[in-house]
Amino acid sequence: MLVREAMTSPVVTIPRTATVRQAVRVLHEHGITALPVVDEPGRLAGIVSEMDLLKGVFDNDPRAFLRPVATPAAPSPRLVEDVMTRDVETVRPNTDVAALAELMMETRIKSVPVLAGSAVVGIVGRRDLIAILARCDARIRDDVLAAIAEYGPDGSTWDVSVRDGAVELQGRADDSAQRIAGVLARTVPGVTHVSIHT
């Protein structure tokens, strides 16, 4: 499965000159956890997450402490560009979702912008990947059968069973038809493994 099949698009972005408060509102209104930050021509300049936006925005409540707590001398960050992450991991629409998942696990990044050229065309978050894995086996089976019927070679018939996202193909077909059926099954969202038995 490719990133373009998993990404959220169109993507909600925010300019680097927006205030932290504006970014908080955008995240809240859209129910998302991160925003790609763009500059004037619309190129990716960074990314801002919920955690970035929480830096220094709350003053201490004196009721929570026995002794008075000094308030910070520096004011809270005001602009998105003051709190955003500038060194951003990105992927392309044709990146394999397995490679993206590996990147997210290794780096502990929750959201990754998707670029086509220099344009931000989508974003993939952990929630997007979880949503794909949550697809029911019956729907995955229907989609595998539909993909093979539409794009597979004529004359090959397959019995398809799915358990927890793992697809098992059974049928009589030559090596070429087997490879094609396996590839088609792997493109279906929610498929975690494909085995072929003839």
Rank of each mutant, 00 (worst) to 15 (best):
P36R: 09
V37G: 06
V37W: 04
V38F: 07
V38T: 14
D39H: 08
D39A: 10
D39Y: 07
E40T: 14
E40I: 13
E40Y: 06
E40V: 15
P41V: 13
P41Q: 05
G42N: 06
G42H: 06
G42M: 08
G42I: 13
R43F: 04
R43W: 02
L44E: 01
L44G: 07
L44I: 11
L44F: 06
L44Q: 05
A45S: 15
A45W: 07
A45N: 08
G46I: 06
I47G: 02
I47S: 01
V48W: 00
V48A: 01
V48M: 02
V48I: 08
V48K: 01
S49E: 01
S49Q: 01
E50Y: 01
E50D: 03
M51N: 05
M51A: 12
M51V: 12
M51L: 10
M51G: 07
L53M: 06
L53K: 05
L53N: 04
L54D: 00
L54E: 00
L54K: 05
L54F: 06
L54Q: 05
K55A: 04
K55V: 14
G56I: 05
G56N: 04
G56R: 08
G56L: 02
V57W: 00
V57M: 03
V57N: 00
V57H: 00
V57C: 01
F58V: 14
D59M: 04
D59Y: 01
D59R: 11
D59V: 10
N60E: 05
N60V: 08
N60D: 03
D61E: 05
D61C: 05
P62A: 05
P62D: 01
P62G: 06
R63S: 14
R63V: 09
A64P: 00
F65T: 13
F65E: 03
L66A: 15
R67P: 00
P68G: 10
P68E: 11
P68L: 10
V69G: 01
V69Y: 00
V69M: 09
V69T: 12
A70W: 02
A70T: 14
T71E: 09
T71G: 07
T71N: 01
T71M: 08
P72V: 13
A73T: 15
A73W: 08
A74N: 09
A74F: 11
P75E: 10
S76K: 15
S76H: 11
S76R: 15
P77M: 08
P77K: 08
R78H: 13
R78N: 09
L79I: 12
L79A: 13
V80L: 11
V80W: 06
V80T: 11
V80F: 09
V80Q: 08
E81G: 07
E81K: 14
E81V: 15
E81Y: 13
E81S: 15
D82Q: 15
D82E: 15
V83W: 03
V83H: 03
M84K: 11
R86L: 03
R86N: 02
R86P: 03
R86D: 00
D87G: 04
D87S: 15
V88Q: 04
V88K: 04
V88T: 12
V88A: 05
E89K: 13
E89T: 15
T90L: 02
P93D: 04
P93H: 06
P93F: 09
N94S: 12
N94A: 10
N94M: 11
T95S: 09
D96N: 13
D96F: 12
D96K: 08
V97F: 01
V97R: 07
A98C: 00
A98I: 14
A98S: 14
